[in-house]
Nucleic acid binder design. Structure first.
Lengths: 203, 203
DNA sequence: GATGATATTGACACTATGTCAAGTTGCGGG
DNA sequence: CCCGCAACTTGACATAGTGTCAATATCATC
């Protein structure tokens, strides 16, 4: 691995991103990446340890470019738990749409590569944290539907908002991303937020 | 591929099952299977076209042994939509616990193998059908929470009851299977079934 | 014009899948 | 008894993709 953040390095990262999006993360070989980036296959190994390292570096690059922090801001600055939850779902939906191909690729190699698994799990943990923050806020307002523990509600919400879930609904059920947002918001609010403006059968 | 349902064939299938459970579906090679079954590696190819074919055959064998039909009976014979949903969730939870390792293995190869993908999708479709049946029944009783389409509710429930979701909650969040059943039932009923005995804030 | 970092080229080792051909074992029927 | 078939073994081989290594080329810059 070379030290500097060279031009070539960035070009490789951009290429990986592009190829992963084009091929939904599947069947992209090291040689494909090299060729598309206009370098030799070995040049890739000059900059990255191995395939896993390359993919992980790409996700970091994407985070940087996409500005994940900024994406989550509306959720973090929300004034009440319900809107925090709503905004978080919006943010996740957009984010997943951006990282789709790479996520699928990472998801695949994490089965066989320990480092990739760690990288993936870290990300999942971050999302879980976001879920937890929303649930905590809802609970602190006394609006968590009775019967839920904060932990249990967080786990369930986390599962509902997982990439796999998004992928199934978007690519398996052909939902549009705004449908995903609307429906998942509805289910999450029904399931976890008490005291909504009607919407259940009580009217 | 040989014709008869020989002893060896069954022994191989049992071995695959066992190894998949032991290793959570990961890193099980054709040679491992052969060795554990006490046959040569080539004997495996005498009975099965390739790895994908073998794994798919194993799932069929498991279905047969586990009696999937019987497992779903309580759900299918339920008298109302709400209990149909509850029973379906119980059945899925048990089933997932039984097929865990194999499911993970299939999940992995379906990315690269078209036939495996088809086999997996078929199973998913069957589960979706079960979700749809419960939702239909709930809707026909006029108890589907307002705002849902049958299709949308089915998709969401299907996603909630996916193997990936179960796996995340059981192996990622360390839930016990009865916790899974209880919590997922609760969320599903809150989300989709109107007119429950209170449980929301209206009291 | 030597130095060091960057890149190329081609050869190679490794792993796992799947294929092929030749040989073995066991068993039932003529 | 032995023919022949089916099931199985053995060992060699092709292939695909990853990762490694060594020798060489390019080029800026001091």
């Amino acid at each position: 691995m070379l030290k500097q953040k060279s031009d070539t390095r960035t070009r490789i990262l951009k290429t990986v991103w592009k190829l992963m999006e084009e091929n939904r993360g599947q069947g992209v070989r090291m040689s494909d990446i090299a060729k598309a980036a206009g370098v030799s296959r070995q040049a890739v190994y000059l900059h990255f340890d191995d395939r896993a390292d390359l993919l992980i570096a790409t996700t970091h690059y994407m985070d940087e470019v996409l500005g994940v922090e900024k994406l989550l801001e509306p959720s973090r600055t929300a004034l009440d738990g319900e809107s925090r939850l709503r905004e978080f779902i919006i943010a996740m939906a957009h984010h997943y749409a951006n990282i789709q191909g790479m996520a699928q690729a990472l998801l695949a190699i994490k089965e066989t590569d320990a480092e990739a698994r760690i990288a993936w799990d870290e990300r999942m943990e971050a999302i879980r944290h976001g879920c937890g923050a929303a649930i905590d806020m809802i609970e602190s307002e006394g609006r968590l539907v009775q019967g839920w523990t904060k932990d249990v509600a967080t786990d369930l919400l986390w599962s509902l908002l997982s990439f796999e879930s998004w992928d199934r609904l978007i690519n398996g059920c052909d939902w549009k991303n705004d449908e995903y947002v609307a429906h998942v918001q509805r289910l999450a609010e029904h399931g976890f937020v008490a005291g909504q403006k009607d919407s259940s059968q009580s009217a």
